[in-house]
Nucleic acid binder design. Structure first.
Lengths: 200, 200
DNA sequence: GAGTTAATAGACCGGATGGTCGGTTTATGG
DNA sequence: CCATAAACCGACCATCCGGTCTATTAACTC
């Protein structure tokens, strides 16, 4: 036995975080391993000691990011009561943490790389971890009468699409205006799906 | 003067169309010039005779696509009366013609390539050609009382985001279900922005 | 301090990719 | 015909990029 300091894990995380920033800025394929190496202040050898490949590194980063997002959401949503409140909070959470361009990189990754179907499958899985959160929220809202009863799956895709799609304004609006846009869109959505029993 | 047959233009279009298909299938960077060459049944020399670079070729294709989309929309919307009808038709047009993965490729292109700010600017310009269509439609609807009066720019981004974002379901739903999803989302949207003077 | 091994370093490689270049074909006008 | 230029061809190039390999360092045990 030797050097079980476990410092390697720290290095791995550091590399991942710097790489994440690069993936967000430049997309998957345009962020080269050499740029990552430089940004992380590590060596090629070290990087490939921790990660089998660029693909695997990206998946690792994506997983960390998604899990972190879910954790944060759990903390945010815990004290909230109504589905309506939660929906606003979810939009906010989505706008601030999720709307980041890492998802664009993931789309690019899935669209071109990942000839390996297993990799593609894992990617899809990671991309969908937040689906159940939306679905549950909408179901709860219907249950409580806040939202009109309707096809949950369909509504889930619509809300999901709305949240993801509002990112188009990313390049043209500031962070504050984006946040306002998300809230406003929820206003409209709520008026559109408000249950008969709800007031407003 | 010699060989002013103008057949070159035909070849250029052919190359562009085959390349477009490849860009849609594989994304910008993953579609290689050699694949394009093979698919187009042309030579490297011929391709670079017609296009200065891969970048320029992509921009050319994007422009053709957008202009074509606008033309088709003009034909579709001409006989339609109300803004509400037009909104449904626009969603349909968007879903069938626009939701195609060329826009994903454009995002990838803009996110990584296009270090040249001029190229990036031209890309943004092309990406936004349909903005005025949405804006005008919404303004008309407000004018006629079909839609509630509100900030047009904000609503435009919301509708735009909704349309673009619904593509998340692309990998999981069939074409018919997608179309239904678009219609359903417009149903909800309309309930959310319906003007006081409108019936429904 | 000798032995061991996790961890790091960085020179190097093979292949792919966008792009070039000199040459060839083909239609047209004189 | 023949000169001319548009259109086309394909071998070749320079570069970049993901990944490998060998060597070295540092931390731990005995």
């Amino acid at each position: 036995m030797a050097r079980p300091a476990g410092q390697g894990e720290h290095t791995k995380k550091r590399i991942a975080m710097r790489a994440k920033a690069l993936f967000e800025q430049k997309g998957y394929s345009a962020a080269t391993m050499d740029e990552i190496r430089e940004a992380a202040g590590a060596s090629k050898g070290s990087i490939y000691y921790h990660f089998k490949s660029k693909e695997e590194m990206f998946l690792y980063i994506l997983e960390l990011t998604m899990l972190d997002w879910i954790d944060k959401w759990a903390a945010i949503s815990a004290p909230l009561g109504t589905a309506t409140d939660k929906l606003y909070a979810l939009a906010d959470h989505f706008a601030s943490d999720f709307q980041n361009p890492l998802m664009k990189a993931a789309e690019e990754f899935g669209g071109s790389e990942a000839a390996d179907p297993a990799v593609h499958e894992r990617l899809l899985e990671l991309t969908r971890v937040h689906y159940p959160i939306f679905r549950q929220l909408l179901e709860d809202g219907m249950e409580s009468g806040e939202f009109e009863r309707m096809d949950v799956g369909e509504l889930m895709y619509i809300v999901l699409g709305l949240m993801g799609g509002l990112g188009v304004a990313y390049y043209e609006l500031g962070a504050e205006q984006i946040a306002a846009l998300y809230r406003r869109s929820i206003d409209i959505l709520l008026r559109g799906i408000r249950g008969v029993g709800a007031d407003g």
